[in-house]
């Protein structure tokens, strides 16, 4: 786990921008939130989003530091710059939240999501599905004579594109993990 350097509540060199531009443009931001892995903490974060009417596009959570008992929540959200700043500040108020990082503004970051797709088909369609999977570097993790389960990793856009292609070829089910994200380099 890469430590997050920024302490919540600090104003300089902080994830919080106390002087945001006030525009009506909807922006998409990926936030990394480091929390104590204790009962109810996810409910607190989700409850905040629903109570204050913020969007959640994607949310993932897992313990990342078993010794320190810390979980990392990655939230993809949309809003005007002012709303994004509010979301970060409100997250910072939650007592078990240690740090809030806005990966979208803090320099380059990598984002990945994993998906499983079940595709059913015979003959040409089945061959075509396999061929496209190969182009997208999706792996076959299960196969019957009439179906495949593909595993694909990539940006959410890549997974969207792959599922769009699979739909006419017999896409039955999709399971996605949501986005995991880290900043690039050692910063």
């Amino acid at each position: 786990m890469s430590p997050l350097h920024i302490k919540k509540g600090s104003t300089s060199h902080s994830a919080y921008n106390l002087r945001p531009t006030f525009s009506d443009v909807q922006e998409k931001h990926t936030l990394a939130v480091l929390v104590d892995n204790e009962a109810g903490v996810l409910a607190r974060v989700i409850g905040l989003f629903s109570a204050r009417g913020y969007n959640i596009e994607s949310l993932t959570v897992a313990e990342v530091d078993h010794v320190g008992g810390l979980s990392r929540i990655t939230v993809v959200t949309t809003g005007t710059p002012q709303v994004i700043e509010q979301i970060k500040a409100q997250l910072g108020r939650i007592v078990p939240v240690h740090d809030v990082h806005d990966l979208t503004v803090e320099g380059p970051a990598v984002e990945r999501e994993l998906a499983l797709l079940k595709v059913e088909g015979e003959g040409e369609k089945r061959v075509e599905a396999l061929r496209l999977a190969d182009i997208f570097r999706a792996n076959v993790v299960d196969s019957t004579l009439r179906s495949f389960v593909f595993e694909i990793t990539g940006t959410p856009e890549k997974i969207d594109a792959f599922s769009d292609l699979m739909r006419p070829l017999g896409l039955l089910e999709v399971a996605r993990t949501g986005v995991a994200a880290l900043s690039r380099g050692t910063a």
Binding site: T11, Y16, R19, Q82, E85, Q86, A89
Partner: peptide
Amino acid sequence: IDPSSINKVIRVDIPIV
């Protein structure tokens, strides 16, 4: 003392947490 109060409803020019 609460950063979330700043710019929540009114845009301010000099924020002091």
